[in-house]
Design a protein around this nucleic acid. Structure first.
Length: 483
RNA sequence: GGGGGUUUAGCUCAGUCGGUAGAGCAGCGGGCUUUUAACCCGUGUGUCGGGGGUUCGAUUCCCUCAACCCCUACCA
């Protein structure tokens, strides 16, 4: 049936008859393909050993030019019959095989940096052929599902995987250098909290205990503030049982940081500094382009007041709207779809998303979120309807969310109760009461600022990717029946 | 959920106003001692996404299902 695979396996058999098992671990390389290219000046005429996947095969009579490579880069192999004892065994190699080579670093007549091969060995047979060398894998789903193939042939992901790794390294570096302690809090929660979201449910057998995959680490991190860690941060996955879209994957990385004696104002300068730090280091620039939009990180980030922005944009003052009916009328006026599951908080959010968020291009702190939308944020002194909160929006996309953390246990208890009420009356995303969190607050928590970043959102911006799937190595995919 | 598009060789795609199909790459055979999308000669790829209908005949027309893509809605 699969004739091509048979050819490959026949060649493997021949190799084994001649040289024995290629799946051996006695090979060790002195330089990766990329290193040889990068360090040609110091490696010229030196003997090296290297290895990688065969990505191109240009045979020319008694000469052979092969390209081998991995994510570090590609290097050409130059093989000449007169100088290579088992030259004819190149017949047993296929595109996609992984080979080990030894030889001297040189340049060919036309100047291509190469290894002049003195010996080579098969290390791992590619049983499958590689995709078209010019076009690669065109189907995005296959590209994501068989990420290793796309990576092996040098698809975008081969470069991006390095960028993503450096991004995490630099993100840690920023917060650590600012004196924040990196901590790790549970992913299995008995009470899911810290965000508006539906959780994944699981179960612990030995304890016969229902558990939830965390939707946010927030409450645990603030328990550490109670315990006396003044500056903490965590980079880790959150899990939300919601729809999948270009901006949403069921599991995604959050970076949350909390600072005692800070406020949402100090979190503003920290987030601004953080993003500028990342861009300066990773992009080596203070501006970038995302989906055709030019985004400048120069100067101070803009500020926009939630309520004032809605007044300016559509002439609606949400401070003067107290009933759901008021919102329904506004929705009607602007031809927005209304559903009966709407709450005041949701309506406000929808108006914001529709008229404010989508129009923002350069980084902007949107401040003054209504209390109905922010059960964990401190309200503004003198105005109980508004909270000490901001979202950092770039190119219409929420990148971070920060509060002056509510640390009054009585007030927090009230807010959680009204969330619980919403939950009881059918809001699947409302947060349940978490008594252990309230109790922690009762021990006393210093005033604090806290912030959470959506890491993939930032990665999308920095890598100019339209879809969150392009910045996750193995994004959530629907199961495939035939495989 | 709604609208549009795509699905043909291993890969990328062309094509048939209805008579079961083709190019490049990859493969196989041969040639070539400085190539790099190597080249030259020869060779063949196929449930034309699945199912049903119309028809003497369907890959082509119609219906339906599926997968993927785009837009839109929802999920902040």
């Amino acid at each position: 049936m699969n004739e091509k695979r048979e050819f490959r396996e026949k060649k493997l058999k021949k190799w084994i008859e001649k040289y024995g098992d290629p799946y051996d671990s006695s090979f060790s390389i002195t330089n990766s393909p990329g290193e040889i290219k990068e360090n040609f000046d110091s490696l010229e005429n030196q003997s090296v050993s290297s290895g990688g996947r065969i990505l191109a095969f240009r045979k020319q009579g008694k000469l052979a030019f092969l390209d081998i490579g991995d994510i570090t880069g590609r290097i050409q192999l130059f093989m000449r019959k007169n100088d290579l004892e088992n030259f004819e065994d190149t017949e047993l190699l296929d595109l996609g095989d992984i080979i080990f080579v030894q030889g001297k670093v040189m340049k060919t007549k036309v100047g291509e940096i190469s290894i002049f091969v003195s010996s080579f060995s098969l290390v791992s047979k590619g049983r499958h052929e590689l995709p078209d060398k010019m076009h690669g894998i065109s189907d995005p789903e296959t590209r994501q599902r068989k990420r290793w193939v796309d990576m092996a042939i040098g698809g975008d992901i081969a470069k991006d995987v390095v960028f993503i790794s450096r991004f995490f390294q630099k993100a840690r570096e920023y917060w650590q250098s600012e004196g924040f302690l990196e901590v790790f809090t549970p992913m299995l929660h008995q009470i899911p909290g810290g965000a508006y979201a539906r959780p994944f449910k699981t179960h612990h057998n030995a304890l016969d205990l229902p558990l939830y995959l965390r939707i946010a680490p927030e409450l645990y991190l603030k328990k550490l503030l109670v315990g006396g860690c003044p500056k903490v941060f965590e980079i880790g996955r959150n899990f939300r049982n919601e729809g999948i879209s270009k901006k949403h994957n069921p599991e995604f990385f959050g970076l949350e940081a909390y600072e005692a004696w800070g406020s949402f104002e100090t979190m503003m300068s920290r987030s601004e500094e953080f993003i500028k730090f990342l861009a300066a280091d990773l992009l080596e620039n203070d501006s970038f382009e995302w989906m055709g939009k030019k985004i400048s990180l120069k100067g101070k980030f803009n500020r926009l007041d939630f309520r004032q922005a809605l007044i300016d944009e559509i002439g609606v003052d949400i401070d003067k709207m107290s009933t759901l009916k008021d919102y329904k009328n506004v929705f009607k006026k602007h031809n927005l779809s209304w559903s009966n599951s709407m709450t005041i908080g949701r309506s406000q959010d929808k108006l914001y998303g529709e008229f404010i968020e989508s129009k923002i291009v350069n980084p902007t702190f949107v401040t003054g979120y209504p209390k109905a939308m922010s059960p964990l944020a401190k309200s503004i002194p003198g105005n109980k309807n508004w909270t000490q909160r901001f979202e950092l929006v770039i190119a219409g996309c929420e990148v971070a969310n920060a509060f002056g953390e509510l640390h009054d246990p009585d007030e927090q208890s009230h807010r959680m109760k009204s969330q619980q009420d919403a939950k009881d009356s059918g809001d699947l995303e409302a947060q349940p009461i978490d008594d252990s969190y309230i109790e922690a607050l009762e021990f006393g928590m210093p005033s604090a600022g806290g912030i959470g970043f959506g890491i993939e959102r930032l990665l999308m911006m920095f890598l100019n990717k339209d879809s969150i799937r392009d910045v996750i190595l193995f994004p959530m995919l629907k199961p495939k029946r035939d495989e």
